[in-house]
């Protein structure tokens, strides 16, 4: 009896389970192919290069800050984290239905595991950002201290969204496809290729309504002091905590039905 890690249901046991699952995800990601690491950074990298080419070489860019490639990557890497998590939330329970059906542990772990493993992938991709900062000669400001805060707020936001989305996707199959569409729209509604300051008049509400705006503003203030937007950051923190609280209640209300449905 003494050899097990923590008593069943104890925080220590649950953290251990969370880690076992996340570590498995990462092993699948990085160990199954020698290109593993490259794949995880290639997507944001190619996207950055495309936008950089289109907006600096073809069009005469009037948005964002210089150097534009750093401006892009600083938001694209966290966007990839967000996008990958939300896509995975739609199948959080179905993907490992057998394990969910036969392992007694808090079902929230299936959400946390996605946020954690994708978050670690995000951290692993950060050297790419550093590389571009060094070679493009971008200036690092004191705003870099907000970087870890942004990571924490984004993790809270993702957990809240996951707690809402994952159980709903089990109960309503259409939601999976809807989510994909919403994600695509959200990419352009979020200041990634542009900055919130570039929004035309009448769209001033957008940075407050979109929690990602404040989070990306924190990431970007590490290199571009003018990207900091206090109102938007406060709004994103309020949104994230609010969604987490709503998520906890939604999850509690739906958990029973989800388990029957699997």
């Amino acid at each position: 009896m003494s050899t097990a890690i923590g008593a069943p249901g104890s925080p220590r046991r649950n953290l251990h389970s969370l880690w076992v699952l996340s570590a498995r995800d990462l092993r699948v990601r990085y160990a199954t192919s020698w290109l593993g690491y490259l794949w995880s950074v290639l997507d944001p990298l190619v996207m950055s290069l495309i936008y950089w080419f289109v907006f600096t070489q073809i069009f005469h860019r009037s948005v964002g800050s210089d150097p534009y490639i750093v401006f892009l990557i600083a938001a694209l890497l966290p966007w990839v984290w967000f996008n990958a998590c939300v896509s995975d939330f739609t199948r959080a329970f179905q993907r490992d239905a057998k394990l969910v059906r036969s392992t007694a542990m808090p079902r929230t772990i299936w959400i946390g595991r996605i946020v954690l493993s994708k978050g670690i992938e995000f951290l692993f991709a950060l050297p790419v950002l550093v590389l571009f900062v060094v070679f493009s000669g971008a200036e690092v400001t004191w705003g870099v201290l907000w970087f870890p805060v942004a990571i924490i707020v984004q993790a809270i936001l993702l957990t809240g969204l996951g707690l809402i989305l994952a159980p709903l996707c089990v109960l309503f199959e259409d939601l999976e496809r809807t989510t994909k569409l919403v994600l695509r729209a959200l990419f352009y509604a979020t200041p990634i290729i542009y900055s919130a300051t570039d929004l035309p008049e009448g769209f001033g509400w957008l940075p407050l309504a979109n929690p990602l705006d404040g989070i990306f503003s924190m990431y970007r203030s590490a290199f571009f002091a003018e990207q900091w937007n206090t109102a938007s950051v406060v709004a994103s923190v309020v949104w994230s905590i609010g969604l987490l609280i709503v998520g906890i209640f939604v999850f509690r209300g739906l958990e029973r039905d989800v388990l029957k449905e699997l």
């Binding site: 050899t3 097990a4 890690i5 923590g6 069943p8 046991r13 251990h16 389970s17 076992v20 699952l21 498995r24 394990l99 392992t103 542990m105």
Partner: peptide, 14 residues
Amino acid sequence: RENVRLTGGLHGMS
């Protein structure tokens, strides 16, 4: 092999 590790881990085995 991986399944044994996973199941053991989920049941609290180090």
